[in-house]
């Protein structure tokens, strides 16, 4: 590992393994929590405030990003109680478009970088991309080189994260582990520690381009790593599950897990984000249902 990460020896528990069956049972128990009425409204409101509204398609255009930014700022224009989302997440090429549209809003601009989603371009190119993205975006979502990680070149992965961290200046750095490619929970835990130790502000599950993307057990492993890292170093790291989160129910489940594993200090967009492209309308429908008492139609909610 790099000099930065070698400074302080990892606590013994950092490298402990994870038992799949026990973890998944724990996650299933968290998912079975029944969140009703005012608790549900609290969670749905929080889910919106923690959302990184995302579009990462090859077919993205300035017009598409403009629509996305409008939705981000005013998810439900007719309901003033609905807050804006946390950020809009796009490719670096469109970050400036998002910047223009969000200039007078609290919504931040996040850009994916470092050869998203594969992370397999030459490192100089990835670094340059991150530096360029940081010139316009508030937040950088970088991917790690999973090939290097799986080949056991942990030092290389850590050094690359540290280099990107340095390159993006004070920008908020989210490190995407792409957990669906890591081959198991032990590696999720290791990669989490590695990313946090190398300078990540957030650790993020997935690009959304690989299945499985975010899963609750993976998120729980990352939460436990974040908790342990805070204990060991005093540094607070955030979590961003991303990919495949489409329903209000899923979003609430992640918030329940954060609440019970990390504690409610983490129930803030400063420490928790949900990366999602199609979650928002389901959350809005559920809020409307809670207020009106009746089930809703998707056609009452605008596309992003």
């Amino acid at each position: 590992m790099s000099a930065a990460t070698a400074r302080r020896p990892l606590p013994a528990e950092a490298l402990l393994g994870v038992d799949q069956v026990g973890l998944e049972a724990r996650a299933a128990m968290l998912a079975s929590r029944s969140i009703k009425r005012e608790a549900k409204l609290f969670a749905l409101d929080l889910a919106i405030r923690c959302t990184d509204l995302t579009s990462l398609e090859g077919a993205d255009t300035p017009g598409r990003v403009a629509t996305l930014c409008t939705k981000a700022m005013h998810p439900a224009p007719l309901d003033p109680t609905i807050p804006p989302v946390a950020a809009v997440c796009v490719y670096p090429a469109l970050a400036a478009v998002a910047r223009d549209h969000l200039r007078c809003s609290p919504v931040r601009v996040a850009a994916v970088a470092t050869g998203f989603p594969g992370g397999q371009a030459p490192f100089e190119g990835r670094l340059a991309e991150a530096r360029a993205a940081a010139a316009v975006a508030d937040e950088i979502d970088m991917v790690i080189d999973r090939g290097a990680f799986l080949a056991g070149r942990y030092g290389q992965v850590a050094d690359e994260i540290a280099a990107v961290k340095a390159a993006v200046g004070g920008r908020h750095l989210k490190v995407i582990l792409e957990t669906g490619e890591l081959g198991g929970y032990d590696n999720v835990r290791r990669a989490s520690w590695l990313a946090m130790a190398a300078g990540a502000d957030f650790i993020k599950t997935s690009t959304g381009k690989i299945q499985p993307a975010a899963t609750l057990p993976v998120a729980v492993v990352m939460m436990e790593a974040i908790r342990d890292f805070a204990w060991a170093t005093g540094r607070i790291i955030g979590l961003k599950p991303a990919g495949g989160i489409r329903t209000a129910r899923q979003a609430i489940t992640y918030l329940v897990a954060v609440n019970e594993v990390l504690g409610d200090d983490w129930l803030t967009p400063e420490r928790f984000r949900l990366g999602a492209s199609s979650l928002l309308n389901d959350v809005l429908m559920q809020i409307a249902k809670e207020h009106s008492g009746g089930y809703q139609s998707p056609d009452d909610f605008s596309d992003a």
């Binding site: 969140i35 549900k40 969670a43 609290p106 803030t268 967009p269």
Partner: peptide
């Protein structure tokens, strides 16, 4: 955080208490 809109938008009394 770095950049814009860094204020903590957590509402007062925002503990996630589960309703019955």
């Amino acid at each position: 955080g770095g950049g814009h809109g860094a204020e903590d938008r957590r509402p007062a009394g925002g503990r996630f208490t589960y309703a019955p």
